[in-house]
Write a protein that binds this DNA or RNA. Structure first.
Length: 197
DNA sequence: GCTAGGCAGGAACCCCTCCTCCCCT
């Protein structure tokens, strides 16, 4: 299967903080892409109950309140549901190599769940390829700005808004690379998700 | 975009350790 037909799941996590070891997931959102097109109708979103108080800074940053996660599944359980939704697709996240997948793996470890291998890409690689690694910002806001992609009603730092924007950014970056006559180079990493039930 | 933590990757160097950069919430 060539990269063009490949099916991807673009995903994003909101958490109680930056440390995979000391913080927990509070929201998971994802959208499917096929042939470099975002399939808006095939999306996934859930709040996650971290089993503790969400720091005020995180509530102001993400808009996620304690009441939003009350009654939501625990982190390992939510990841299990997500894993089933992902199926055999390859995951993609922005800075996923150093952030999102670390949280996924730490959550699997803490939840002592059975795991399965999964492949993933980090969309930072596309930004590096397009604009050069050094001396250029590659955060999602910087990428969206360079691509002239506005938020258009989507809320940044809500995982649902972020995956919709990241999907569009990936589409636009691919378009920009093709315009230059380049194929996107996306290194494939190996990670894990909870085993599918 | 305030705050904190630490990987990954490179440099220097021959195997590690140190260092710096940058991104995520």
């Amino acid at each position: 299967m060539g990269v063009h037909e490949q099916e991807w799941v673009v995903f994003d996590l909101e958490t109680t903080g930056l440390s995979p070891d000391h913080d927990d997931i509070i929201q998971i959102a994802a959208v499917r892409m096929r042939g470099w097109l975002v399939l808006e109708s095939e999306s996934f979103a859930t709040y996650v109950n971290p089993g503790r108080t969400i720091p005020p800074f995180i509530t102001s940053y993400t808009g996620i309140r304690q009441a939003d996660v009350r009654g939501a599944p625990a982190p390992a359980e939510a990841l299990g549901v997500f894993s089933s939704w992902v199926g055999n697709s390859t995951l993609v996240a922005h800075n996923g190599h150093r952030f999102d997948m670390k949280f996924v793996e730490a959550t699997c470890r803490r939840g002592a769940c059975g795991v399965r291998p999964v492949s993933y890409h980090d969309s930072l690689a596309m930004s590096w390829q397009l604009w050069g690694r050094r001396g250029v910002r590659h955060g999602l806001d910087a990428v969206l700005g360079r691509l002239r992609l506005g938020a258009s009603g989507l809320r940044r730092h809500d995982a649902r808004g972020d995956v919709a924007l990241l999907g569009r950014a990936i589409q636009a970056m691919r378009h920009e690379l093709m315009r230059r006559g380049e194929e996107p180079i996306l290194p494939q990493h190996g990670g894990m998700l909870p085993a599918m039930e």
